[in-house]
C-alpha cells in the first residue's frame, strides 16, 4: 500500500511499486488529463508536479511519490483560471490539445520560478515538451501573456 496525495486528496494505492505514476494517475485514479506520449521521458505529455517539480510521470515510479504531493492538470487551478490557462484560452493555443496538459504543467513551474521569463528562459524551460501540431509560437506568446497577467494581478 502506497499513499500519495493528488490534487490535495489522499489516495491509498495498491499497485506494483514499480508502476509509473502516469498509469497510477490514469488507470487507477481515472484522472486522464495527464497523457501518455512516449513512455521514455522524451515528450513531456505526462508532466505532473511532484512537490512542485515538473516530473515526467511515465518514468517516475509510484515508489518515488510515496507520501508526496502530486498536482496534475486537473489540479492546476480550481476554475480553469490559472493565468496560463486564461492566456491559453485567449490565444487559442491548443490544436489537437493532447500535449497541452504537459505544456501547461511545465510552463507553470517556469512562471512560478521566473515571473517574467525571456524567450531564452522559455526555450530552456519548454523544450522538453513536444507538440506535433507545432503550437510552440503560441505557447511562447501565451507564457508572456500569462506573465503579464500575473504581474498585473499582483499589482492590483
Amino acid at each position: 500500500m502506497i499513499t500519495i496525495t493528488v490534487n490535495g486528496q489522499r489516495h491509498d494505492i495498491e499497485a506494483d511499486p514499480n508502476m509509473p505514476l502516469l498509469w497510477v494517475i490514469r488507470d487507477i485514479l481515472g484522472l486522464t488529463g495527464t497523457k501518455f506520449g512516449c513512455g521514455a521521458a522524451q515528450c513531456g505529455a505526462c508532466t505532473v508536479h511532484l512537490n512542485g517539480e515538473a516530473v515526467r510521470s511515465c518514468v517516475t515510479k509510484i515508489n518515488r511519490a510515496a507520501g508526496q504531493n502530486i498536482v496534475t492538470i486537473e489540479g492546476l487551478s480550481a476554475n480553469n483560471n490559472h493565468p496560463l490557462q486564461l492566456a491559453w484560452n485567449e490565444m487559442s493555443v491548443p490544436q489537437c490539445g493532447y500535449c497541452q496538459s504537459g505544456q501547461l504543467m511545465s510552463a507553470a513551474v517556469l512562471l512560478r520560478e521566473n515571473p517574467n521569463p525571456t524567450d531564452q528562459d522559455i526555450d530552456d524551460a519548454m523544450s522538453g515538451n513536444i507538440c506535433r501540431c507545432g503550437t510552440y509560437q503560441r505557447v511562447r506568446a501565451a507564457i508572456h501573456k500569462a506573465a503579464a497577467m500575473q504581474t498585473e494581478g499582483v499589482k492590483s
Binding site: R26, G30, L31, T32, G33, T34, K35, F36, T72, I73, E74, L76, S77, N80, L84, Q85, W88, N89, E90, S92, V93, P94, G97, Y98, Q100, S101, L104
Partner: peptide
C-alpha cells in the same frame, strides 16, 4: 477563440485513450 480550448487546458477533453 476556439470553443475546445477550455477543456484542453484543464484535462477535461476526452481523447481516445481517455475513454473508459
Amino acid at each position: 477563440q476556439r470553443m475546445d480550448t477550455p477543456m484542453k487546458t484543464n484535462g477535461e477533453a476526452i481523447f481516445g485513450l481517455d475513454k473508459k
